[in-house]
């Protein structure tokens, strides 16, 4: 295992990118910040699989690829399975000695958006986690089907407007709460599960390295603010992420071996969720008087979840 130094950003910046520019992700998209960071965390050879989604359609449009390592896309739902197959083949060929370099250190990674992770590829992900392949699955969670123009997913938070859960005269947007994918993955008894955010680059890099180093199936949910569908200025991607983590809308934590929970970031000043909501067009309607109760509910949900995380951290069970 060859991990690279993340002592500070200066050290980290000496890495040579393996994710190239002139991909066609939107300007300011957090997906590529997260992908770059993952690829810069390690010197190892990488086999990466991507589900269909923004990342995939923007980084491998013939005749161009933005990937400087082995990469495969099959369909919307099966990146975890594609990488399972590749990992199984790696083991089989290593045993037989038919690899080009039988000593090469290889890490297997799968990327999916929240559409493919929470929804259409959920079964494939669960299967791969249960089988215990040595791989890391990273969800780029932008809380909607951004690639198809912003439809609801089961990761879309309550109250958000999407094209298939619209806010209108008779609706405040999505009615259901976000699915707790991290808890579900931890329930697979995965050795390492975490929720991370690109604004906290160091905890994200540390989490990535831990996942890559840990043998077995690891899962990381990353918040990936989407300027196009969340409706904010592209320059504010990191500012919005700061609000997400400082309002605890998106708490940063890890769960080891399915039970040992560690909170990785505690905001000095926890901000009210209004500040996060007000910064995005998708929540604009919540500030009408008749929707005030939704903001209250969101805040209540955040408080309860944060309380739960802290208790679990204390309890160490």
């Amino acid at each position: 295992m060859a991990i690279t130094s993340i002592k500070n950003l200066k050290e980290f910046s000496t890495n040579n990118d393996r994710f190239e520019g002139a991909h066609t992700l939107c300007p300011g998209c957090a997906h590529s910040m997260i992908v770059r960071e993952l690829m810069n965390c390690t010197d190892d050879n990488l086999v990466i699989a991507s589900n269909t989604g923004c990342l995939e359609v923007s980084t491998a449009v013939y005749p161009f690829t933005s990937w400087d390592t082995s990469w495969i896309h099959i369909g919307f739902e099966n990146a975890a399975t594609a990488v399972s197959g590749a990992e199984a083949m790696f083991k089989a060929r290593k045993k037989k000695g038919t690899l080009k370099d039988n000593d090469a250190s290889v890490k297997f990674v799968a990327f999916g958006g929240d559409g493919s992770t929470y929804d259409i590829g959920f079964q494939w992900l669960s299967g791969a986690m249960e089988r215990g392949h040595d791989f890391t699955y990273i969800c780029l969670d932008n809380e909607n089907y951004a690639n198809t123009g912003g439809q609801r997913s089961s990761a879309t938070p309550i109250g958000a407007h999407t094209s298939t859960a619209q806010a209108g005269t008779h609706s405040y947007g999505k009615k259901q709460k976000k699915k707790d994918i991290v808890a579900i993955m931890a329930a697979h008894d995965a050795p390492y599960v975490a929720q991370l955010a690109p604004n906290k680059w160091k905890s994200m890099a540390k989490g990535f390295q831990k996942a890559l180093e840990t043998e077995g199936p690891c899962f990381i949910n990353t918040v990936s603010p989407c300027c196009t569908e969340w409706k904010f200025d592209p320059k504010d991607t990191i500012n919005i992420t700061d609000l997400a983590t400082d309002t605890l809308m998106f708490p940063i934590y890890e769960i080891i071996n399915g039970h040992e929970l560690n909170i990785l970031y505690r905001p000095k000043n926890v901000l009210p969720v209004e500040e996060y909501l007000a910064a995005q067009g998708r929540y604009k309607h919540l500030f009408k008087p008749e929707n005030k109760h939704v903001i209250e509910e969101i805040q209540k949900n955040i408080n309860e979840y944060w309380e739960m995380l802290q208790r679990r951290e204390e309890a160490r069970v």
Binding site: A82, S84, G85, A88, T98, Q123, W124
Partner: peptide, 22 residues
Amino acid sequence: EFVMVESEHAAMSGCVGASAAG
């Protein structure tokens, strides 16, 4: 390696990943 997956869709998906791995 015998990989018992959770559906036939996954079976062929695993085969594709494995076959691309040479």
